[in-house]
Design a protein around this nucleic acid. Sequence first.
DNA 1: CGACGTGTTGATCTCTCTCAATTAGAGTGG
DNA 2: CCACTCTAATTGAGAGAGATCAACACGTCG
Lengths: 245, 245
Amino acid sequence: MKIIDCKECPLREIPLFLPATAKELDFIETLKRRQIGVVADDSIIHEGQENAPLYTLLSGWAFRFKTLSDGRRQILNFLLPGDFIGVQQKMADASAHGVTALTNVTLCVFQRDALWELHTQAPRLSFGVTWLTAQEESLVDDSLLSVGRRSAEERIASLLVITFKRAAALQAEGPEHGVAFPLTQQHIADALGLSLVHTNKTLRKLERRGLHRIVDGRLYLGDLKALARIADLYGDGKPAPRPLI
Amino acid sequence: MKIIDCKECPLREIPLFLPATAKELDFIETLKRRQIGVVADDSIIHEGQENAPLYTLLSGWAFRFKTLSDGRRQILNFLLPGDFIGVQQKMADASAHGVTALTNVTLCVFQRDALWELHTQAPRLSFGVTWLTAQEESLVDDSLLSVGRRSAEERIASLLVITFKRAAALQAEGPEHGVAFPLTQQHIADALGLSLVHTNKTLRKLERRGLHRIVDGRLYLGDLKALARIADLYGDGKPAPRPLI
DNA sequence: CGACGTGTTGATCTCTCTCAATTAGAGTGG
DNA sequence: CCACTCTAATTGAGAGAGATCAACACGTCG
């Protein structure tokens, strides 16, 4: 795998990400240790792992999750390119949740004290970390609202719309060409607190109504407005520009 | 209400909180604008409010929540003294969630750009903000696991144990004297994604088994170990020392 | 003293789960 | 090329945890 120079990071060309100064890029470069690849379905951080490093997801998708001792699993949120991995772990002795690759992924690995270095030496970047952390929490908030108070149909509509928008903001093509969507129905079920069977039936019901289509790992929304209405989502459309560290 | 000098903040005497340097205290003092009281059940931040200020909860309890347009409400987490309020709002145009006082509360109000000032001028404190944000996310993660994958009985056991520990860490008396517990059953139901009726029945079932007792707004745990086992919580006991800004 | 908020309990209903079986594609080995 | 295996998706049937509906008890307060 080719080691990418932060100054030539392909992610930075995506309009979604805020530009960084040359000085900031240099600084990030000094914190970056190496770059690793993880195969789909392999673990990036184990539940309970101590002293996990800090990563940025460079390409591919992953997810955070927690499990109960009898195996029941809850997916907390999905991670897309540009997302930070490991801030919570740095803040606790051990990781309260695991992170697993959903597709093949590549990760930028930062030195262990990168978070502290960021705070002491690059306020604009550490502010970005806080922003990203707050943003992720708000994703989990949405999920909690879904799982706690939305019906199965509403939950699925909500996940489709939110995931669609996140993925669309990362790709060059317009949303009418669909977006990459590597989740299996089991992932959807585990993210929404539903059983696999009921997830399948609800998904099919929406599909038969022409609201969405999932073909060959791509998601097409036939009627985003209708889905958003079902989910009671009143999104403004444009996603907020995000920092990239 | 008496305005409290940060250097004499009563919260700082609680062992749970990390000590701050005199210099840091002075700096925090310059960011603090005033102090306000909010009556129980009154709103602190409205859902969708723009440009909400940043607060620290000085005394009393509050909660973050989201609602659907038909009124269904999900409580995201409870806020206890020392918790930060409004970081997510500062990071988005509008607040995606509301905050309401659960009891009468007093709040320290910071100037609007306090978060940025913290990052540029006090790295140890801004690191604390990131820590607190990550910590709160981890609370929501726990909740999402509960609501998504735990049975009603397990959810209630989990909430009782976690809330009990948080409250106990803030009081001088030992946990055998119980802890303040201002939640109504409606709050518990809304936090756990259950109906009020089912919450009541499950709560009574646990109480009849002698696992807990709620009297006059105080919670007593008859058998914390048993509750933790039901909830599949394997906590280490001591809560992590936390920064206080 | 009536209105209201909170807690309690029984009866019924339904959404979602569990169990079971089938189909389709992708990969593997003989 | 075909049998075999594995994973993901699909569908039907029956069961159950939790929702909804309805009443009532108790304390507080204007």
